[in-house]
Amino acid sequence: MSQNLPPDVVLKVDDLSVVYRTDRGDVKATANVSFELRNGEALALIGESGSGKTTISLALIRKLPRNAVITSGQILYQRNQEVQDVLKLSNRQLREFRWNECAMVFQGAQNAFNPVLNIRKQFEDTAQAHGWTDKAAVRKRALSLLQLVRLDPERVYDAYPHELSGCMKQRTLLALGVLLSPQIVILDEPTTALDILTQRAIIDVLNDMQRQLDFSIIFISHDLSLAAELADHVATVYAGEIIELGGVNDIFYRSLHPYTHGLLTSVPTLDHAQDLLQSIPGSPPNLITPPEGCKFHPRCAFADDICRKENPALTDDVGAHLAACWHKDRLLESRKARA
C-alpha cells in the first residue's frame, strides 16, 4: 500500500462522515471528522448525549448498525510500519482487526458476558477464535491481566458472570479487551451509570493499565472530569463534528471554541468556593436538519453573518491546538477582559 504515516501514528481518520437512513430523513451523525491517534496516547471524545461519539467509534471498527452508511472518508491503521485501510478490509480481516488490533468495550457492556459460561471459558473462546489454543498460556496471560485490574485472579477466572458485581464485570471486560494485545482500545462511556466509588476504581485501573501495557486508548464520555483525569488529548464533539482538538490542558485551561468554553462553564465543581456557572442557551440541534453554517451558531454569543452562512474548518492558529470557529479571537479577548 502506498500510504505513509509518521511512525508513531497508529490511527489516522480523514474526513469521515456517517449518516443513518431513517424514515424521517438522513441523520448526519458524523460529519467530516479527522484526527490522529499516537502510540501510547489516551484520546478523549467528549460531548453531550446524541452528539455522535458512539457513531465515530463504531465506524472505526466497522460495527455500525445496518441503517448506517459511511458517506466519505478514510481510516488508516498502522502496525509495524504496515498501513491498512480499515474501510477496505474483508470480513475475515475485520474480525481479526477487532480483537488483535482495535478492541472496543461498549457502553453498558457489563451485560456483554454470556451468563451461562464462566469467565475462563469466555477468555479461552476469545483466544481460540483468533487461533490461540494453548490454554495454559491463555490462563497465564488472563490471570496476570486480572491481577492488573485489581481482581482476585484465581477466583474471578473460575466465576460465573452473576457472581461478579458491576464493577468487577467492568474490570474483567477491560482485561478481556486487552487479552490479544491490541494496539488500540476503545472505551465507550466506561464509567457512566456506575456508582462513584466504582467509577474511581475503574479510573485507577485504567491508569494502571495504560502505564503498564503498551496501547492507545480512545475513550468516549459526556463526563468532562473523566477526560480531565485520563486524557492526553481531548476532542470536543458537537452535532457530529469535532469542533475542537488539543492537549488536555489546552482544552481545559485555554479552550478556543465557544461550545467547549460553554461546557466548561456549566459543570459544577467540588471546590470550596461557590461556582459561578452559566449554561449554554438553547439545546443541541437535530441532526436530520442541522443549522446552516457553523452548527453551533444558534446558541453562540459571538455568532454573526459569516457564522450563519459558512461552516468554519478545524484549523490550528495556536500550535497543535485546533478549533473550528470563525471568531477564536473573540473568546480569547473576552477571557482576557475578565482576567
Binding site: 466509588l197 466504582t198 474511581r200 476504581a201 463526563d223 472530569s225 480531565a228 490542558n249 481545559f252 465543581t269
Partner: peptide
Amino acid sequence: LLSAIPDPDPEKTRSKQHIQLRSEDI
C-alpha cells in the same frame, strides 16, 4: 465520596488524594 470524585480540572484531579476503601464489597 468527596475524595473519589474526579474534578473537571486536569491539574487538580490528577493531584487529588484518594482515600482507599477497606474493601470494595457492596
